[in-house]
Structures are given as structure tokens and as C-alpha cells.
Design a protein around this nucleic acid. Structure first.
Lengths: 342, 342
DNA sequence: TTGTAGGCGTTATCAG
DNA sequence: CTGATAACGCCTACAA
């Protein structure tokens, strides 16, 4: 299975050392010998054995990526960002996703020893500290969306709190006082931060917060749908719904329209993530833009810095900014005219 | 960097052979010796070096996955399907995506030699035969959505033709005669098959086909939007738009509503893929359901069969069926009442 | 300019 | 039951 360097050497009538030299441009090789070796290699369809190579060079040129159970667009964008950045830098990507327990992640991390040069771990669970506590620092590591204290790790987070805060401020500024929130998955750190931002802005803005304005969700369209249905029965009815992500917001939108209500005239709706589709649904969805693609790309960059020693060592914490994208679902033409009429 | 078996052996006062035995349950080991070794291993945080292991065992327990430049939901679902199936079977996944040239794929394939036991290649380009022609059969291989003739490879395809055909039949059955199509990316095999199904059904159904009813697109919301705008200016105006995928359909939906037209009363709209969101947009989108998740999972299954010799050898071609999912965007309540009035 | 030989971390085949 | 030792495919001093 697979031609080895030895067979190429024999066929070309040279030693394996010489073959190795031409394939790595290490050391001098007579031009004729080189040509001959290349010819033989091509004929035999020889390709160096990556595994053997990385064993002796103590470098796999592979980066491990551990992801949790992620939803739709978010998942694909993170991976795409990672993959592109990695390949551009000459690295492979060993992927392992759908982990939802710290224990699973640790198992996967162990399984990757000797296969990767470094690791990117995304674990947006509120018990992330469990993970970090028994994290041997044997391997360069970048943490993504992890709830970690201190400066012991290189970590990148999204400004979920700030984004949620700004969104609620926007809604309050548009005249809303009873703003409901559809929460994200339980135990999810991102979800918790977005909720925290919502509460803070509600308090600071003097809005009419009540426990009944917060409904459980899990980032799916279905959960957004049923949460919104419940919210429509709250009395007095909220005038705006802020969903923890766009999928849930779209589910909520569906529920609100099914009741015959208009968005944003009767109910403003806002999401989080700003997926590509957000601007094309009806009405266009106001959302908090998250640089998802960047998240993956930056993680790779940081990791490679750590690998090549170009980084400023450990302790670099980074917070990626989010930005408000206001569309018709919160301040559409209808809303404006209604407001004027009232 | 990293504790080796040698250090464990020394610390435990045994030979590396014995340590190896306890970690692989190969050969007998005295119970006390085993306990001691385990204790030392734990203390030293020893984890076997995967790379070295796979070198001597001639098995990497890793599967390579080569993907093209994919869009949103499709991308994530394929990968998720692959990853889940792979891990369940005890395999790792080495991912390399965003390839859009046969040449790139071949480079990536070479780079994976010695790192993977088998390969899954998705290359939905109409020049896929270029790829297969110089495909050394050195490694088990499963082709996904590839335009390959003959039975030389294990391949899995989606019934794009059948799905498109059925969708157009549905539209014709609903009374439409001028049915437009927003095409998918040029040179894309899936797109070509969907177009072929559209044309065949138009011809067979005796609908009013014309060249102007076909517009270019590239699977994005933006392309669907502008294609639909152009279609709205065609005279006589089509009464239905069939988009090559859901993203484009959603873009088209946006354009149609922006003109003040109603869906489906003034214009029916249908998509392809049936992404999770399809049922939640407004109006719910009629689409062709594609078992994307299955696609990845099955590919892994086939590959592992080939690896373990349990498969029926090469030449297995599989066609995954698609199913019609009819929602309001083609036969909504409005459409029905309008038809009655006319 | 080229070949020999040692070793990367592991498993597997032998003797002991 | 345990310990040498030869691979696995490759790179790299060191010698020639």
C-alpha cells in the first residue's frame, strides 16, 4: 500500500538519503541524479508518507479543532474560517465536533496527542473551568468562547454582552418598554452572556422587566416559535422580542405572523449573529453582527503564533466586537407610521 | 514535549514492551506490574503518541474529507454527518475544504497520504472526470456528488434530477405554465442536474418554456434576489419561480415582495435543499428535501466498509432520493382563493 | 556529491 | 510473565 522512499531509491539506483534530499531540498544533489529521481518518483507515483515524516520531524503540520454541538450557519462559518486560515499557513485540520461534555473533550484531546501540533477548543459551556483545571499545558492551545477566568490561556471571545446590551438599548430607544427575551441553550456561555446584557440594559433603561418576559429556548427555530407563542399570551403583551440568535428570531417571527400580528408594528423582533440570510427574510431582521468567520481565522493565527514562538506568550485574551445591524423587523416603515399616528 | 513510553517504563522499572502490553491489552501482564504502570502513567500524564502508533500499525484511524467551496447549511450538515459517523466508528476526520479546482484537490490528496486510511471526495464540478482519470487507486475512496461515469468508484449522489422534475411537475399541477428557473453555480454538477430536471419536466408537461425564463445564479441569496428582479420584468411575466436552492429562493422571495407582489398569489416560489429554516420563513417555503446529513454519514459508512473489506468491492453507486415538501409559497391559502375568484 | 547508520515513539516477535 | 530487538517510513549528522 503506497510506494516508499526505499523503492524509489532502488529503482533510481541511489540511496534513500539522496531521494530524501531532492524531496526536501536539503543538501546538494547532482542535477542528473535529481532529474532521474524525479522521473522515477513520478513514474512510481511516489508521495512522501506524512505520518512518518511528522514522527521524525516532531511536527505534524496539523491543527486540532474541537467543537461543541453547533447550529447551522455558526458551525459552518467557524469551520470555514479555520480551514481557510489553516491551509493558507500550510496546516491541516483535524476536526472533532459535537462535543457537549467536558469529559468528551478531554478524551478527544488525548486522542489527538501525536497527531497535532496544537489545539483549538471551543467549549461554550458554563462549566468550562472544569476543563481548564486539568488541562496539561503540553500543547499550544487556544480557547474559543470559553468561560475562563485569569490569563493562563490564549482565548478569544465574542462580545456577547455588549451586543445584547446595545440591542436592548436600541429597542428602548425605539420606544419599547416591555421587551421580552428568548434565551439560548441552557448552560451555554454565549447564551448566558447575551441574557446578562439584556438584563443590564433593561435595568439601566428603566424598562418594565418581569420574569415572565424571559422564555427558555435552545437556539433552534422551533424553540423560538414556541417561546414566542407563549410570550404572545403574556398580559400585558410585550411589544418587542429579542431572541438569543437569528434562528430563534425567525421562529418567533413565524409565530407572531401566524397570530395575524404585524412586525414590527405590533411586535418588533431582533436576533443575534446576523447570518447571511437575515437581510433577506421578511421583514429583514435586525440583528447583532458577529464576526463568525473571523473567529475561526483568528484562532488559527493565534495558535500558529504560539507554535512558532512569535506570540507574546500566554495570557492573551481577545474580545471580538459585535455590531448592531438595524433592519425593518424593529424599525420598519410600518412601525414609524404607526408611531406617528398614535 | 510529551511523555513517551520510554519514560514511563523507566519510572516504573519495567521495559517498554510491558508498558505497551498494558496499554493495548496485548499479552499477559502481572496484575501488580499493571497497577504500578498505570499509576506511573497517570502520574506522568502519559498518552500514547498517535502518530508513532499509526506508523507501525499501518493504520491511522483517520479519514480524509475533501470538500469544495460549499454554502451555509449544506456545508455544515455534510460535515456534521461525516464527523458523527466517523467518531462513532472510532475514526478521526482530517478536513480540507474550499477546493474549487481539480488540481487543488489532487494536491490535498497527496498531502494526506500517510495521514489517512481512506478518503471522501466531494467535487460537484462538471469536469470531475479530470479528477478520476489520474486517481491512483492506492487508497479507498468514496466520491460524493461527482459527475462520474462507469462503475470504477464507490460513489454517492443526490437525486437532483428527480427532485427538480417532481417540483416542476408539482408547479404545473398547480396550474402554472410559465415557470422560471434560477440556476445554480455555473459548472456545478448538482446545479446542472437540477436544471436538466426542470427542462425535462417543462417539456413533458407542455409548459411555456423560453430561454428568458432561465436566469443565472450561484446559490446565494443575493443572486436569487437579482435573478428574480430580472424575471419580474420578463413579459409575459412568469407565475412561478423555481430556484436551484433555498438560499436563492429566499433571495427571490425578498425581491418579489419588494415589488409589492404576493407569494404565492402573484408568484409561486420554490427552492431546493429544504434547509431547517425553510418551514419558518414567510411564507413557508416549498422545497425539495435533500438528506444532507445522511450524505455525509453514508459516505463514512461506505468508506469504512471498503476499509474493513466488508463492502462488496468497488462499483457501488448509490443515489439518495429527494422528496417534495409542499408549503405555502407555492400553494398557500391565498393562491387557492385567488384561483377561485378568477 | 553520495551513502551509512542512528533514531523518532510505538508495536510485535521472539527468546528467556 | 517479561525483556531485548527488529521493524514502520522517513530525516539527518557523519563519513566517504
Amino acid at each position: 500500500m503506497g510506494i516508499t522512499i526505499k523503492e524509489v531509491a532502488k529503482e533510481a539506483g541511489v540511496s534513500i538519503a539522496t531521494v530524501s534530499r531532492v524531496f526536501n531540498d536539503s543538501g546538494p544533489v547532482n542535477d542528473d541524479t535529481r532529474k532521474k529521481i524525479m522521473a522515477v518518483a513520478r513514474k512510481l507515483r511516489y508521495t512522501p508518507h506524512g505520518g512518518a515524516r511528522s514522527l521524525i520531524m516532531a511536527k505534524t503540520n496539523t491543527l486540532g479543532v474541537l467543537l461543541p454541538d453547533l447550529y447551522g450557519e455558526f458551525f459552518s462559518e467557524v469551520i470555514r474560517g479555520v480551514d481557510q486560515a489553516a491551509r493558507q499557513a500550510g496546516y491541516h485540520v483535524l476536526l472533532s465536533s459535537s462535543h457537549n461534555k467536558a469529559e468528551e473533550i478531554e478524551t478527544a484531546m488525548k486522542a489527538m496527542r501525536g497527531r497535532v501540533d496544537g489545539l483549538i477548543v471551543m467549549y461554550p459551556d458554563i462549566d468550562a473551568h472544569i476543563l481548564t483545571s486539568n488541562l496539561s499545558d503540553s500543547m499550544p492551545l487556544v480557547l474559543l468562547n470559553c468561560d475562563v477566568e485569569g490569563n493562563d490561556f490564549v482565548s478569544i471571545n465574542i462580545d456577547n454582552y455588549g451586543g445584547a446590551f446595545a440591542m436592548v438599548q436600541h429597542l428602548i430607544g425605539a420606544g419599547h418598554r416591555r421587551i421580552a427575551m428568548i434565551k439560548g441553550a441552557p448552560n451555554n456561555f454565549d447564551a448566558a452572556e447575551r441574557l446578562r446584557g439584556y438584563r443590564a440594559a433593561m435595568a439601566e433603561g428603566g424598562a418594565e422587566w418581569s420574569e415572565r418576559l424571559e422564555r427558555d429556548g435552545d437556539f433552534t427555530e422551533a424553540s423560538g416559535f414556541s417561546a414566542a407563542e407563549a410570550l404572545l399570551d403574556v398580559d400585558p403583551r410585550p411589544t418587542a422580542i429579542f431572541a438569543a440568535n437569528d434562528a430563534a428570531a425567525i421562529g418567533a417571527l413565524s409565530a407572531v405572523r401566524q397570530r395575524g400580528l404585524h412586525v414590527p408594528a405590533d411586535m418588533a423582533i431582533a436576533g443575534f449573529d446576523d447570518i447571511p440570510m437575515a437581510g433577506y427574510i421578511n421583514p429583514p431582521l435586525t440583528s447583532v453582527h458577529v464576526p463568525i468567520h473571523d473567529l475561526g481565522g483568528r484562532a488559527i493565527s493565534r495558535l500558529i503564533e504560539a507554535l512558532t514562538g512569535r506570540g507574546n506568550g500566554k495570557g492573551r485574551k481577545e474580545l471580538l466586537p459585535t455590531t448592531l445591524v438595524i433592519r425593518d423587523s424593529t424599525v420598519g416603515p410600518k412601525h414609524v407610521s404607526d408611531a406617528t399616528i398614535t
